[in-house]
Write a protein that binds this DNA or RNA. Structure first.
Lengths: 359, 359
DNA sequence: CCCAGGCTTGAATCCCGAT
DNA sequence: CATCGGGATTCAAGCCTGG
């Protein structure tokens, strides 16, 4: 059987993969189940319920079962890849370590791990952990030192304001009109990926006309972006509903002219510098004293970047407002530290930290 | 043998770990060998040679050998951890996936993976990949649903300008004066971590006085920051040179006072004030009426601190939940009393009582 | 038509001490 | 160890509604 290009194969991922010919695709992009292992319901502070990913396809009996599944589909993907091909897999801390080990053990050669920093992640509602604000992608060639993989270095550099593209990408979640809805207006797929992410992946690691295989096609983000960028795709999807939506979606895509392929700009976030960073950088130490411009009011710095005056504590802004009985206060310009040249605003420390951050 | 606190144990990591007592440390921070599999020398565009990590301690024969080593030291660390303890491990894509799987397989429970975004990474000189601009840390508790790990949520939030701290941390590499040099002015250790990174780790996940074990102590960044923040450490280091440098470095650190170590505390830790106390203090009287924020629902206060609405009575929380048909409710913020300035939440009365409690 | 303010939502391993 | 119940907990975007 030849390779069924620009087609969605409906059915089990493994069985479908086994029917594809050896060395026939240029790139694999895979967004497998994450095996989340969630507990009970999670309520927001306003008591609304978080719409959890509790679909049957994300349930595995054990790590062993997940590993076996992972190795099986990865092995087939490797067989189907051309010798100069490469693979991308996306995941979270729940599964990505297991995926990474399988990738290495099967003989792939990791080129980068990429961090997708979400500009608008869901917060940690209960205050129990750090906000889980990123996902991880692994990019690997078929083998170490084999035939050369594709990397469009200059296109990536161009897309990043002429600086080398880094391993951390800041992109928003898939929301708004881009997010596919079902008949009732609810999201059609629980984990639809943003097209911007696929845009960067495909632009970085394929050439026009290349064939991209996505064994967990879902609602077809890979196919839609591939088509828009003048690449071909092969999708595998078990759920008929998702496949139908994907077909409709891809049919609406107009392939871009060479012209239009230029850049989706990378939103560069303001380098906000929290006051706590000043302490981490060692520019101030816990216990140091800050003064108001005239040196009258004094406050003590704590290790977490809060200030203390008498009984009250809070951020540099809050405490600054408080000691002045003002409605608000810019702590960066109000508070001063003692330097060898007398009192200086802590804003100069922020400037020092900023000068070490990427633009 | 007891736990040798604020000490560097010179010797093999595994042998030393085996001598430490069960359930004796609060936190493990580990920066193990990354098992970098470098090819030949790497040259910069100007033909200067990149100073690679090619130390013998970073060489392993195979993935299997690295896995066996990883599991061995992780297993000992888990034994040595208290039941409410936690572990941090830092690595790059070369090893972090293998570490992560070992962590999961040994029964640790991953809490977050944290991305350290380097603000000043080494560029990719060959233009063959994305600039490798981050490393990954895994934070895991000793077991799933075991005794509660330490997370100073409020301190982290304060250190991040009152926004939840996210899983991506932007920090510069260890350079300048902080970077230890050997006699000839070359860097003393190839992978010295920045103190800012340890500052955040330790502030987030330990309490003052806690003991932090670092089985790959190197030049003692963990020890130096632990000492500065009023924590204790146990370091294990095989290379006598590194250990000597670490000792000298740590001796120069001035520990923070208890005062200086204090950070923003959590509300959960504040003393409980039963609602009845508000009545006992005369701040409200039996028969007074409380209102929901918009003034629509009203409830009558009884002498024992219960509320009555129509036929039902109960705690401020229960009745609050009931009148809203909500699964839960914080009565302190939901119910309001009539003051001369309009409706005010009864939480201000609790604050009044708390401020009069003995320290 | 625009703007301000409110509502909704996103791959989430999401409370904790007292009894 | 399970249960009970007090009461703590959210950020950025996009969409909608009302003025």
């Amino acid at each position: 059987m030849g390779l069924p290009v620009d087609t969605i194969i409906e059915g089990d991922c493994l069985e479908a993969l086994k029917k594809l010919p050896d060395r026939s695709v240029d790139l694999v992009f895979a967004d497998p189940p994450y095996n989340l292992q969630l507990g009970g319901d999670l309520l927001r502070p306003d008591n609304s319920k978080v719409d959890a990913v509790d679909d049957h396809w994300d349930q595995f009996e054990s790590f062993e079962a997940y590993d076996a599944f992972t190795r099986a589909w990865l092995k087939e993907c490797r067989r189907v890849l051309k010798d100069d091909g490469a693979i991308w897999v996306i995941g979270s801390y729940h599964n990505i370590f297991r995926v990474g080990v399988a990738v290495q053990d099967l003989g792939f050669w990791i080129l980068n791990d990429i961090v997708w920093r979400k500009s608008n992640p869901m917060p940690n509602f209960k205050g129990t952990r750090f906000t889980n604000a990123h996902e991880t992608l692994i990019w690997a060639s078929k083998s170490r030192g084999g035939r050369r993989y594709t990397f469009n270095y200059d296109a990536m550099k161009m897309a990043n304001d002429e600086l080398q593209m880094r391993s951390d990408w800041t992109l928003p979640l898939c929301t708004g009109d881009e997010r596919l809805k079902d008949g009732s207006g609810a999201k059609a797929h629980p984990t639809q990926k943003p097209e911007a992410l696929l845009h960067r992946v495909i632009l970085a690691s394929t050439k026009p006309g290349d064939v991209i295989l996505d064994p967990f096609f879902g609602t077809g983000t890979t196919g839609a972006v591939a088509r828009r960028l003048g690449r071909k795709f092969v999708g595998i999807e078990r759920e008929a509903e998702y496949a139908a939506l994907a077909r409709k979606r891809i049919a609406q895509v107009t392939p871009a002219t060479a012209d239009e392929m230029a850049v989706t700009g990378s939103k560069r976030a303001e380098p906000r510098v929290p006051f706590g960073t000043i302490l981490e950088a060692g520019l101030l130490r816990p216990g140091d004293v800050l003064y108001c411009p005239k040196g009258r009011n004094a406050a003590r710095v704590r290790a977490d970047g809060s200030l203390v005056v008498g009984e009250v504590s809070g951020s540099i802004h809050k405490v600054g407002a408080l000691v002045q009985s003002a409605p608000a206060c810019n702590g960066w310009t109000y508070w001063h530290f003692k330097s060898d040249k007398g009192l200086a605003p802590i804003d100069v420390l922020r400037a020092k930290v900023r000068s070490q951050l990427p633009a």
